[in-house]
Design a protein around this nucleic acid. Structure first.
Length: 573
DNA sequence: GTAGGGTTAG
């Protein structure tokens, strides 16, 4: 129990008590003690302990303020003060303030202190000042493992992966043994480079040194194997971690998502919750794209609710994280087909970036609301946001889906001149698709032949699909041969060609194509659809009778077909 | 009596 009487009359040294309070996360008590102590007790030891206490409790801002008060009171800082103050500057992104402190370090003749030096290296590399970091590093008479780590991890975190590996090797040459902090940092750099050989070497070193008892080291290994596309090794390491923390779970979730195993990602979220680990911002930004891919609206909604309840979606003034995670929520709703909910999130965003607008444009276009997509585009330009390549993919595909042909052609023509975005193959594909859908096959062919980029098989497939739709086999034959030669194993090409022939009644050629497919062992993947009901996903494949309620499903389908016939609809073959 | 360095998403 903490009693004021005890606080005031304790015979224990002030500094020890301050440390005790700060370790108990009670900086209020520490401060009260400090403020009620005699000026004799408010010495450099006590000041240092309070500054360190604030930092240890995640309050680096107040730590800096307290340090300013220290300067004002005339107490001289010492070699214990500066490492803390410099760390506090890095914590609150006060690089300029840190530079000023560096000046004082010289004034007090502490530039040779390895503690001060490590903090300075950390500060400078955090803000990308490589020259300054090297200056500090080179001038130090003693280089201990912490200093080396500050260099290696500093480089690893600012994208200088090659430099990180270089310094790591240098460290070994100078005979300094890497510790757990070193290997976590270097593994992070190695995974970003996808350098599996170095990764395996470090893994060996980790085992040899017994560092595999540390959860951070193991997490870094999971991440490294994942980024090097060794899913099995990543999983093996993950399963070996006895006390998995939030990093372990987020890492393995990310590994699955990056491998395109969206179901696996969602399944792991369940296991994570079951293990009693609370999802954080990183977790949800990994899970939301999985929901978007699977069009798992219910799961997506649940995650969004979780975010609201747990304050992960609060508006913190348009920080990068804030905008990013809201874009992820919007994208999930848009891809799951709920533009209403996507728009609700969009409207509530106080800061929107280009991606926010792109998601809305793409979403409206994708779901057949072409004019809304174009409205969004003009609003975006009014809001003075510069459209990018993705914007125009959205705009052009919106035009394509609602048949706004001349509009689309105008956008393609103006992209470069008016908006400074050079059209890519994707943009041409959209316009060719658009012309093809509208039946302007000659014009589409003309564009494929005259565009400044070489046509890919994707472009030709868009053209072939249009030929099929409008029953023009003559125009399709030559490009079809090209595509078949380009990608003989792609079943879509064969199917398209056989469909083109089928559409014009050339059934002999249809069987020819089918025969070639059998001969070349090309198989068509069966079409597949799914629906989310309750907490389960029901998957359907054409001609599939494996569902427990298949008779009900087929009865429903038959009744739907009957309605379609009554309404005058004929299914296309 | 007090101090510096680590892992996950985009």
């Amino acid at each position: 129990m903490l009693r004021n009487g005890f606080l005031l009359t304790s015979p224990l040294p002030t500094t020890s008590l301050i440390n005790m309070y700060s370790k108990c996360n009670s900086m209020t008590h520490a401060l009260t003690l400090f403020n009620t102590s005699s000026s004799h007790h408010r010495n450099v030891f006590a000041y240092n302990a309070i500054v360190a206490g604030f930092i240890a409790n995640g309050m680096s801002g107040p730590a800096l303020e307290f340090y300013r008060g220290m300067q004002f009171s005339g107490v001289t800082p010492d070699k214990f003060t500066f490492p803390c103050v410099i760390k506090a500057c890095s914590d609150v992104n006060e690089c300029l303030e840190g530079r000023k402190v560096h000046g004082l370090v010289f004034k007090f003749g502490l530039e040779g202190d390895v503690f001060v030096g490590s903090a300075l290296v950390h500060l400078y590399l955090r803000f990308g000042f490589i020259e300054e970091a090297y200056q500090v590093f080179d001038e130090l008479p003693i280089r201990d493992v912490v200093l080396w780590n500050a260099m290696i991890n500093g480089f690893a975190q600012t994208g200088q992966f090659g430099l990180a590996l270089e310094v790591y090797k240098e460290m070994g040459e100078e005979g300094v043994t890497p510790n757990k902090f070193t290997v976590t940092g270097i593994l992070s750099a190695i995974s970003m480079m996808g350098d599996l050989n170095s990764g395996r070497a470090i893994h060996g070193f980790v085992v040899k040194m017994g560092y595999d008892s540390g959860v951070a080291v193991m997490n870094a290994l999971v991440d490294m194997y994942g980024k090097c596309k060794c899913l099995r090794d990543a999983l093996k390491i993950f399963e070996m971690i006895p006390e998995k923390d939030i990093f372990s779970w987020n890492s393995i979730l990310c590994v699955h998502e990056q491998c395109g195993d969206h179901r696996g990602t969602l399944g792991l979220l369940d296991s994570m919750l079951h293990a009693g680990v609370k999802p954080d911002l990183v977790t949800v930004t990994t899970i939301l794209p999985a929901c978007a891919h699977l069009a798992a609206l219910m799961h997506g909604r649940e995650i969004h609710s979780y975010m609201i309840i747990n304050g992960l979606e609060k508006d913190d003034g348009g920080s990068f994280d804030d905008v990013y995670v809201k874009n992820a929520v919007m994208d999930m709703y848009a891809k799951c087909g709920s533009m209403r909910e996507a728009h609700l999130v969009f409207d509530k965003m106080s800061y929107k970036d280009v991606a926010s607008w792109n998601i809305m444009i793409m979403g409206y276009g994708m779901h057949g609301f072409g004019s809304r997509a174009l409205d969004m585009f003009s609003n975006m330009c009014e809001a003075e946001l510069k459209p990018d390549e993705v914007t125009f993919v959205g705009v052009l595909s919106a035009c394509s889906h609602v048949g706004l042909v001349s509009q689309g052609q105008k956008f393609l023509a103006q992209m470069d001149s008016l908006y400074g975005v050079v059209p890519t193959i994707e943009h041409y594909t959209c316009v060719i698709d658009m012309l093809g859908r509208a039946g302007q096959l000659e014009e589409a062919y003309e564009l494929v032949s005259t565009m400044p980029i070489e046509a890919s098989s994707v472009v030709w497939r868009a053209f072939l699909a249009a030929c099929r739709l409008h029953g023009n086999a003559a125009l399709a034959e030559v490009p079809a041969q090209q595509v078949l030669e380009l990608e003989p194993e792609h079943c879509g090409n064969h199917v398209l060609m056989s469909n083109v022939y089928g559409a014009v009644g050339r059934y002999e050629e249809v069987s020819e194509v089918r025969l070639t497919m059998r001969q070349q062992n090309v198989r068509k993947d069966p079409g597949c659809s799914w629906i989310e009901l309750g907490d389960g996903v029901h998957v359907f494949v054409a001609g599939d009778w494996r569902h427990p309620e298949d008779y009900l499903i087929y009865a429903g389908l038959n009744s739907l077909n009957a309605h379609l016939y009554e309404g005058g609809s004929m299914p296309s073959v």
